[in-house]
Amino acid sequence: MSQRMKINDQITVGPQPDETEIATLVDDGFKSVVNFRTDGEDEQPISPDTEQRLVEAAGLRYLHLPVSMKSMDPKLVDEFRSQLEALPKPVFAHCKSGKRAGAMTMMHVAAEQGMSGEQTLQKAQQMGFECDQPELKEFVKSYVDQHAQSGA
């Protein structure tokens, strides 16, 4: 799984792991898995329910927070951020390719660090996230601008 991208010491994002890869997450020291895929999405190696069983059987915490481009809204990001607090770190967060997971985690980190929406998009680009959907770009930017902890 060479497409993993470490956001910081607490969060790494990437594409959805299959059964074998879930075991390697344990070996790699992860303590929790966050799945942003919606049930019934195309090309899922395993369903969210199966993934939950496998992740928990491996001794990791599991959070399923379905996000689609249509359902992405500030409340969902807030929910992710508050649930993230409670999860044992480090966390492996994924969607199908890592795009939604990357956007969600970047918004969290940026808001925590008081970055602007523009800075967030630049940092995401430097890290190799292709934010190729204008509506996703706009959403990330406005969320961060509204939630950045100024001076905190």
Results as ranks from 00 to 15, higher is better:
Asp73Met: 09
Asp73Asn: 15
Pro74Tyr: 13
Pro74Lys: 15
Pro74Val: 04
Pro74Ala: 13
Lys75Pro: 00
Lys75Asp: 12
Leu76Arg: 12
Leu76Ile: 14
Val77Arg: 11
Val77His: 04
Asp78Pro: 07
Asp78Ile: 07
Asp78Leu: 07
Glu79Ile: 07
Glu79Tyr: 07
Glu79Gly: 08
Glu79Ser: 09
Phe80Met: 08
Phe80Ser: 02
Phe80Ile: 05
Phe80Glu: 02
Arg81Gln: 15
Arg81Val: 07
Arg81Ile: 10
Arg81Phe: 05
Ser82Cys: 05
Ser82Tyr: 14
Ser82Ile: 14
Gln83Ala: 05
Gln83His: 11
Gln83Arg: 14
Gln83Cys: 00
Leu84Ile: 01
Leu84Asn: 00
Leu84Cys: 05
Ala86Trp: 06
Leu87Arg: 04
Leu87Asp: 06
Pro88Ala: 11
Pro88Lys: 12
Lys89Met: 11
Lys89Arg: 15
Lys89Leu: 07
Pro90Arg: 14
Pro90Ala: 05
Pro90Gly: 10
Pro90Gln: 14
Pro90Tyr: 13
Pro90Leu: 06
Val91Glu: 07
Val91Leu: 06
Val91Asp: 13
Val91Met: 08
Val91Pro: 09
Val91Thr: 12
Phe92Trp: 09
Phe92Gln: 11
Phe92His: 13
Phe92Val: 14
Phe92Glu: 02
Ala93Phe: 07
His94Tyr: 10
His94Pro: 05
Cys95Pro: 04
Lys96Tyr: 07
Lys96Glu: 06
Lys96Gly: 15
Ser97Tyr: 06
Ser97Trp: 05
Gly98Leu: 04
Gly98Lys: 05
Arg100Lys: 12
Arg100Gln: 10
Arg100Pro: 02
Ala101Lys: 04
Ala101Trp: 07
Ala101Ser: 10
Gly102Gln: 03
Gly102Tyr: 01
Gly102Phe: 02
Gly102Val: 10
Ala103Glu: 08
Ala103Asp: 11
Met104Lys: 01
Thr105Glu: 02
Thr105Gly: 00
Thr105Cys: 10
Met106Trp: 14
Met106Arg: 01
Met106Val: 04
Met107Leu: 12
Met107Trp: 03
Met107Tyr: 08
His108Leu: 03
His108Gly: 00
His108Ala: 03
Val109Asp: 00
Val109Trp: 01
Val109Cys: 00
Ala110Gln: 02
Ala110Glu: 04
Ala110Lys: 00
Ala111Arg: 01
Ala111Ile: 11
Ala111Trp: 00
Glu112Ile: 12
Glu112Cys: 15
Glu112Phe: 04
Gln113Arg: 15
Met115Ile: 02
Ser116Gly: 09
Ser116Thr: 15
Ser116Met: 07
Glu118Ala: 15
Glu118His: 12
Glu118Met: 09
Glu118Tyr: 11
Gln119Glu: 09
Thr120His: 08
Leu121Glu: 10
Leu121Ser: 02
Leu121Tyr: 04
Leu121Ala: 10
